[in-house]
Design a protein around this nucleic acid. Structure first.
Length: 423
RNA sequence: GGAGGGGUGGCCGAGCGGACUAUGGCGCCUGUCUUGAAAACAGGUAACACCUCAGACGUGUUCAUGGGUUCGAAUCCCAUCCCCUCCGCCA
């Protein structure tokens, strides 16, 4: 959520910043609601002040005054009406404010779509093959570690079953990533619920705007999380963090659930885009002046994993129009998939500045005495599993159809290669 | 799911229609004392909104949440949520 005070004081600046990410939002209705709200609050406060004063007089005096009591009854009705007015206006105002995305940082490249993204660096080289590398679904024909048919049978399209070494590889990746983040990168491990309340999703800004991508249980009004970012934002919702408690860094593994309605028809083969996938997420709460620096650290932590795996990847800085709704600056990590012949997004790292903090009410104090200030929040995938599996399978495939497991994972998988099953 | 009990400031805990402007204690901050610290003593200790150049002054709101009764609600009534105890069920 944007600061209403900023919108009120510098509407042109806000309008321009929103336009730079392709958002043509009219601010006039918001400004009008803001004015109505303040006016109604002001009137109500004055009436309440009078009522408080008179009620005290009534309490102090011996005999009741029917005239005063009658007058106060009317004042009470007027107050009630103003309260309803404030409530209604605030509802409309917050509805409007909740649909505005974050403002990009001033030095983010301008552009309306992915074509304006900038490749900041590339690591490694594509491997050389003396055969035609296969896509992971073709490799799987011999490996038998991904069962598309049975996934569809029990759950429908875009659900898969992992089997044997495939299931073990996935579990190994999760454990390994969490171990590296907690033991070497300074994150505290969190295991959160996969079901959350509506207000939790409003805090992270998945609601109200992106409800159609979420699974929802109407009976209990609980939602399946699309990413652990949702949970980690909520960890300190409504809190005022003590001086000295920042930075706070969490890493969490969760399954992630997404309807992918908008992507219907795209990426239908393989496990690139599925309704349920696993992901380890990094998250940080920091002082505002430190957030851009912290974003570089999160990107570096994600890159560290890719380098240890030996995967060829590139770092993209997203342009204004391609960034996610809550982000003020984002970097995507894309890994090369030699079978599919494309770059796969395996991580997205963002500085959300005070945008989620304002929605979720996450503040901190610099000193014991000082006023609470909003923290800055950052998130980054570290990493998204199905696409890392794709990259590992396709990158380390051998001419005979087996896949060699990267050294760093072997203590976790307990095997050095996945071999075609005997037919 | 059933039956009871309970949710008050950073924490503990009193208050159960009008001086609550929320007692007291702990914690925290400042000061005195001290070479420094501790102890002792004194003072101060919330958030949010409106107003404002301002974190000043002022006003309002907040005693789980939302309604209601009343001139006036932490206090009375209703609903909801959460926590605890016992029973049932269960991995």
């Amino acid at each position: 959520m944007l600061d209403i005070e900023l919108i009120r004081r510098r509407p042109d600046q806000v309008r321009a910043a929103l336009a730079s990410r392709g958002e043509e939002s009219a601010l006039e209705p918001i400004l009008a609601l803001d004015a109505r709200r303040r006016d109604a609050i002001h009137q109500g406060d004055e009436l309440r002040a009078r009522r408080n004063q008179v009620s005290q007089e009534i309490g102090r005096s011996r005999e009741r005054s029917p005239e005063l009591i009658a007058e106060m009854r009317q004042v009470g009705d007027r107050i009630k009406a103003l309260e309803d007015e404030v409530k209604g206006v605030e509802e409309e105002l917050s509805k409007a404010l909740l649909t505005l995305p974050n403002l990009p940082r001033a030095d983010v490249p301008i552009g309306l779509d992915a074509s304006a993204n900038i490749v900041r660096r590339t690591w490694g080289q594509p491997r050389a093959y003396d055969f035609q590398p296969k896509a992971h679904w073709d490799l799987n024909d011999a490996l038998g570690i991904i069962d598309f048919q049975r996934g569809a049978r029990m759950s429908g399209a875009r659900f898969v079953v992992l089997r044997g070494q495939g299931a073990r590889l996935q579990r190994a990746l999760i454990t390994w990533m969490l171990d590296v983040h907690t033991q070497e990168h300074g994150y505290i491990e969190i295991y959160p619920p996969a079901l959350v309340k509506s207000e939790t999703l409003v805090g992270s800004s998945n609601l109200p705007k992106f409800a159609d991508n979420l699974y929802h249980d109407a009976e209990d009004d609980l939602w399946l999380v699309p990413t652990a970012e949702v949970n980690l934002t909520a960890m300190h919702a409504g809190e005022i963090l003590e001086p000295g408690s920042l930075p706070i860094k969490y890493a969490a593994y969760t399954p992630c659930f997404r309807k992918e309605k908008t992507a219907a028809g795209r990426d239908t083969r393989g496990i690139k885009r599925v309704h349920q996938f696993d992901k380890v997420e990094m998250y940080a709460f920091v002082e505002p002046e430190r957030s851009d620096e912290e974003l570089q650290k999160i990107v570096a932590d994600a890159e560290d994993l890719l380098q240890r795996l030996g995967l060829h990847y590139r770092v993209l800085q997203l342009c204004t129009g391609d960034m996610g709704f809550p982000s003020a600056r984002s970097y995507d990590l894309e890994v090369w998939s030699p079978g599919c012949q494309e770059w796969l997004e395996v991580s997205s790292c963002s500085n959300c500045t005070d945008f989620q903090a304002r929605r979720a009410g996450i503040r901190f104090r610099r000193e014991a005495r000082s006023r609470p200030e909003l923290v800055h929040t950052l998130n980054g995938s570290g990493l998204a599993l199905p696409r890392i599996m794709i990259a590992i399978l396709e990158t380390f495939q051998q001419s005979g159809g087996s896949v060699v497991i990267p050294d760093c994972l072997r203590p976790y998988t307990g095997f050095e290669a996945i071999k075609p099953v005997e037919q």
